[in-house]
Simulated assay, not measured.
Amino acid sequence: MATLTRAHEELFRRTPDQCYDTFESLYQKCQSDRVSAKDQWILPHELNVTHDLSVCLGSVPDYNLNDWSFSQLCRMARVHKDTVNRLSPKTASKALEETLPSTADKPYQILTVGEEIRSVHGVAYTRLWNTELLDIAKEFASDFTPPQTASDGESSGLYCGEQDMFAFLIDPTGWAEIDGEAFAPGFFLWNSEVGRRTMGVQTFWFQKVCRNHIVWDAIEVVEFSSKHTANVRDGLSEVRKVIESLIVKRDERRDGFVNCIRKAMREKLGHDDEQVLSILAKEGVPRHLIKDAMKIARQHGAFTIFALVDALTQVTQRVQLAGDRTEMDAKVGKLLSLALAA
């Protein structure tokens, strides 16, 4: 089993203004960003850095750089960002003016929102909007929700900042039995509209999520990611397949679990006390617990598998040591598999 820490890492690098309580509020934020954004194609000689480090795009002055677009501009100029930050605005603008390519014939792809420049890319970059990924989640996983609020009392696992988006979603009603143990489905979804990270998805089945958003005991972990190149939208089909596969498997397992319960409510474990006692003893259940459980089950009229599992679940709560109680609960839980063999 794997321990997944991607959501845990996101938790401790996000500020409160990047946290969203619900999937819908995250989606609205991403939709608003998309509507207000504008892609501009500007030739290198039409991009000019002014004396106060604002930027002129063609004939339009006074665009401001944010931290990410400033970093990108420094990389294009092949000047270290920390070096530029140590200079006065006037000297820094002169340094960028002299080092930025100005004779190239391929345009820059510049994403602006109002008077702010969100990102600067060359022609090889292909933008993928956050909503394009979230639309897939809405289509196939509308009943998935964020996990419990994290230990900071604010973070829900849904984040969107000026550089990227991240969503952590689980199905709290999707628990199913896999090899005698209980698991629920979940997935991570991430993207950057400004080239800060890849786009991708990771699906899994888990047993526990702690308040630090560490996913414990994960199995069937599937991951897909793609860089923002010309074929990045082909990756949307892969993301759709990965999430759809998780949903299909969840439905199959949930239906199988429901059928198992129904059968357990019909099938008798034994026809008399002696036979029931013998079968449960072979499964490792202590005799004193069996006798107490049989008394409870008898009140429901029959020794069905479900009635006995329910009764044993009640009597194991009397076991004082937590370790022993956990061991007994595991044995009792596996009794449901007897319904499938019946």
Rank of each mutant, 00 (worst) to 15 (best):
V239Y: 02
Q18I: 00
L128H: 04
N212G: 12
A124S: 15
Q40A: 13
I290G: 06
D17T: 07
E177W: 09
Q28A: 14
V84Y: 08
F166M: 06
V332E: 00
F303Y: 14
L65F: 02
A124Q: 14
V319E: 03
D273H: 11
S237G: 12
W41S: 13
L73N: 05
P16E: 09
Y20S: 00
Q207E: 10
R325E: 09
L57N: 01
T50F: 02
E10K: 09
E132R: 00
L73W: 00
R196Q: 05
R287G: 06
A184N: 03
S151M: 09
S119A: 15
F188S: 06
S119F: 04
K81A: 12
K94D: 10
L277H: 09
R262M: 13
H51E: 14
H271G: 14
L57I: 10
H288Q: 13
V222F: 05
R78H: 13
K227G: 08
D179K: 14
V123I: 15
H271W: 05
E238H: 12
P147D: 07
R287N: 14
A124V: 15
R318V: 11
L336A: 02
V309H: 02
E115S: 13
V232R: 03
T15F: 10
G200V: 05
T3Q: 15
V285N: 00
V222H: 09
I243C: 01
V221L: 08
R86M: 10
A330I: 07
N231P: 03
T313Y: 05
